[in-house]
């Protein structure tokens, strides 16, 4: 939590989080990250830097991968928010485990959310998932443990589902 984001008067906001409609009374600039982690106790979304550099707080808003630390609650009003706790991550989770892509685990939720966003974009746009594509998609998610090889392989495996 950062003071300035919470300095204005609370307003009522409606969000759909992981399929459930939630009505909250929060300061409009409160970071979506704090809304998720503190108000909704969805702590799977991690804070690594608070300034949009590490990708640990990646969530989906209306299907797009965005950073919860740079999203004001009012900017997400009425949107569909999906976090790592939500449905639809089964394949990516399995691939991450099988490839040894999770070590300390702090970047893992953000990586998995980003992987899903990329996999869905590949399917939607009919783009063949490749290692280079995965590297470009995951370039905003920092990992200090793995050297990325296992993560990229897990992402490609995830996205290849449904491709011949």
């Amino acid at each position: 939590m950062k003071p300035i984001f919470d300095e204005s008067d609370p307003v009522e906001l409606r969000l759909c989080v992981n399929g459930a409609v939630r009505t909250l009374c929060v300061p409009p600039l409160r970071r979506l990250l704090d809304v998720l982690r503190e108000d909704l106790r969805l702590t799977g979304t991690k804070e690594g830097c608070g300034e949009g550099e590490c990708g640990a707080c990646t969530v989906l808003i209306d299907g797009q991968a965005v950073l919860a630390c740079l999203t004001a609650a009012c900017s997400a009003e009425g949107s569909e928010v999906v976090t790592i706790e939500g449905p639809g991550f089964e394949r990516a989770r399995r691939e991450f485990l099988e490839h040894g892509a999770a070590q300390c685990g702090i970047c893992t939720p953000g990586m998995i959310v980003m992987t899903r966003a990329w996999a869905e974009a590949c399917r939607r746009d009919g783009i063949e998932p490749t290692e280079d594509g995965a590297r470009a998609a995951l370039a905003g998610n920092l990992c200090r443990c793995t050297g990325y090889g296992a993560i990229v392989a897990a992402a490609v495996s995830t996205a290849r589902e449904g491709f011949p």
Binding site: I4, L29, E51, C69, L70, T71, A72, S75
Partner: peptide
Amino acid sequence: ILAGGTDLCVEFESGRTR
């Protein structure tokens, strides 16, 4: 003015803007 927030929220975070 807050649009995408990718600059302004960083300024909030650093205390550069009030």
